[in-house]
């Protein structure tokens, strides 16, 4: 049943596959993101409560969703590398970690910039913002561990264990922070209700989200290629590639 997957465990095959895949993903992202962003910025009606600051939503929410999704993806890759000894899964986890960290930063920053006009302050210790901040720390830990080892394969294994431990902890951290937040509610500014999404608001959101997902996929493919090359730099096919690149 899974036999069609087996050739892709070969670094060379999966390298060429992702090289082929990258332009398509890039093209889709390059169409969807501008459409979604322009739609969100110019054509969506302003929220009756939050006015035009609501438009940050189209950046904030996709970034936040992707930041969590990418971490889960990294943990799944780490798990499959641990169980089935797939070295390429480690490469993909290493490729994704910085992208996820950047999206976490974007989610945090846009959250702050949205919070300033709405809550009157850049930062409140809101449950979601706090969990996002802790997620950023987890990402930075994974990236730091990747960089701490000279041997890329060892680094991948170590960071994989950390990301699995982290993904088990994420729900616990999230619920404990949420619980902590409701406990100390007195000091915080009253939270805004989730804006109920009408259809005309939903479509651009979906397009933005899909666009950013394809962006992650495209960039992930590109970085995955780099990681595969770095891990196989002594192989003949990589050397042939490198000489061909230099002659160009």
């Amino acid at each position: 049943m899974w036999k069609w997957l087996h050739p892709y465990a070969n670094p060379e095959v999966s390298y060429h596959f992702s090289v082929k895949l990258t332009p398509w993903l890039t093209a889709i992202a390059a169409i969807l993101i501008p459409v979604g962003i322009v739609w969100a910025l110019a054509f969506v009606p302003a929220d009756y409560q939050q006015g035009d600051s609501f438009r940050i939503f189209y950046l904030h929410v996709p970034a936040a969703m992707l930041s969590m999704g990418i971490y889960v993806g990294i943990a799944i890759a780490a798990f499959s590398s641990l169980v089935w000894q797939l070295k390429l899964a480690d490469a993909s986890a290493a490729a994704l970690a910085p992208i996820g960290a950047i999206f976490t930063v974007i989610a945090l920053f846009t959250g702050a910039a949205w919070g300033k006009p709405m809550w009157g302050t850049w930062w409140i210790w809101d449950a979601r913002l706090t969990s996002e901040l802790i997620l950023l720390f987890l990402y930075l830990g994974v990236i730091a561990l990747h960089n701490a080892f000279d041997d890329k394969n060892l680094a991948g294994k170590a960071a994989g264990i950390l990301s699995i431990v982290g993904v088990i902890n994420i729900p616990i951290i999230h619920y404990s922070v949420e619980w902590w937040n409701t406990l100390h509610q007195g000091a915080t500014v009253s939270k805004l209700d989730k804006p109920s999404m009408s259809v005309e608001m939903l479509w651009p959101f979906l397009i933005c989200f899909l666009g950013f997902s394809f962006f992650v996929a495209a960039l992930g493919c590109k970085r995955f290629c780099t990681e595969v090359l770095a891990r196989n730099s002594m192989r003949p096919w990589v050397r042939a590639l490198a000489t061909a690149q230099e002659k160009k």
Partner: peptide, 27 residues
Amino acid sequence: SFGLSAILLISLVISSNNNHKALLNKI
């Protein structure tokens, strides 16, 4: 927020591309 996000994402793309080229050159 839109500007900073764009800067971050674009710089990530550029650095990824540069890393790829630098690695090939090194090899």
